[in-house]
Deep mutational scan, measured.
Amino acid sequence: DYEVGESVTVMDGPFATLPATISEVNAEQQKLKVLVSIFGRETPVELTFGQVSKI
């Protein structure tokens, strides 16, 4: 299970290999909103559970 505030690594898509912090969890739809730090700015990205891995 994923929790808000948890650190994960993006495994898929254009942000693969980047660390991210979970900002929202939708367990019903198996989706997460995460904040990816790009060029010093936090960018919100919506991903599925399968696109991230716990650190």
Score class of each variant (00 low, 15 high):
P44E: 15
Q51V: 04
E24K: 06
K33R: 10
P44T: 15
E42H: 08
I55H: 11
E6D: 14
S7G: 08
S53E: 11
P44Y: 15
S7N: 11
D1E: 13
T48K: 10
P44Q: 15
G13R: 02
K33I: 15
V34F: 01
G5A: 03
V10K: 00
F15M: 05
E46G: 04
T43R: 08
M11C: 08
Q30M: 10
E28F: 10
A20L: 03
T9S: 06
V36W: 01
T43L: 13
V34W: 01
E24N: 07
S7T: 15
V8Y: 02
T17G: 15
V45C: 08
E42D: 11
L35V: 13
N26R: 07
V8P: 00
T21W: 10
A16G: 05
P14T: 07
V4N: 04
S37K: 13
L35G: 02
I38A: 09
A27R: 14
D1I: 13
V25Q: 02
V4W: 04
Q51I: 03
V10I: 15
L47E: 00
I38R: 06
Y2M: 05
P19T: 15
I55G: 11
T48E: 11
Y2D: 00
Y2A: 02
V25F: 04
A20H: 01
G13N: 02
R41L: 14
A16Y: 06
Q29R: 10
S23R: 10
L35P: 00
G5E: 02
Q29F: 09
V36R: 00
V4I: 10
G50D: 14
A27D: 09
A20F: 03
V34D: 01
K31S: 11
T43F: 15
S37Y: 13
E3F: 14
G50F: 10
V34A: 06
P44C: 15
Q30Y: 08
E46C: 07
F39Q: 13
D12N: 10
T21H: 06
G5W: 04
P44K: 14
T9H: 08
T48Q: 09
T17L: 10
P44A: 15
Q51W: 04
P19L: 14
A27F: 14
S53C: 11
S53T: 11
V36M: 05
I22S: 00
V25R: 02
V34K: 00
E3L: 12
S37I: 15
S37T: 14
V25A: 03
F15A: 03
R41C: 13
N26E: 05
L35S: 06
I22E: 00
P14M: 08
G40I: 03
D12P: 01
Y2K: 01
S37V: 15
T9D: 04
V52C: 04
G5H: 03
V52D: 01
E6A: 08
V52T: 03
I55F: 10
T48L: 11
V10S: 01
K31N: 06
D12L: 09
P14F: 07
T21I: 15
G50E: 13
A16W: 05
L18T: 04
S53W: 07
I22C: 02
T9V: 15
E46M: 08
V25Y: 04
E24S: 09
K31R: 12
G5Q: 03
G5M: 04
G5I: 00
T9F: 13
A20S: 04
V45K: 03
F39P: 06
T17W: 12
Q51D: 06
Q51L: 04
E24V: 08
V45L: 12
L18Y: 14
R41Y: 11
F15P: 00
V36S: 01
V52M: 02
E42R: 06
E28L: 11
A16T: 08
G13C: 04
G40Q: 05
A27N: 13
L32C: 04
D12Y: 12
A16R: 12
N26D: 12
A16E: 06
V36C: 05
T17I: 04
A20R: 00
F49C: 03
N26Y: 14
V8G: 01
I22V: 11
G50S: 13
Q29L: 12
V36Y: 02
V45I: 12
F15Y: 15
E42W: 14
A16F: 05
K31D: 02
D1T: 13
E6K: 05
S37L: 15
V36F: 03
V25P: 01
Y2H: 04
T17V: 04
S7K: 14
V45H: 05
F49Q: 02
S37G: 07
G13T: 03
V8A: 02
F39H: 13
G13A: 02
T21R: 12
D12A: 11
Y2I: 03
T9R: 12
M11I: 15
V25M: 05
V8R: 00
F15G: 02
A16K: 12
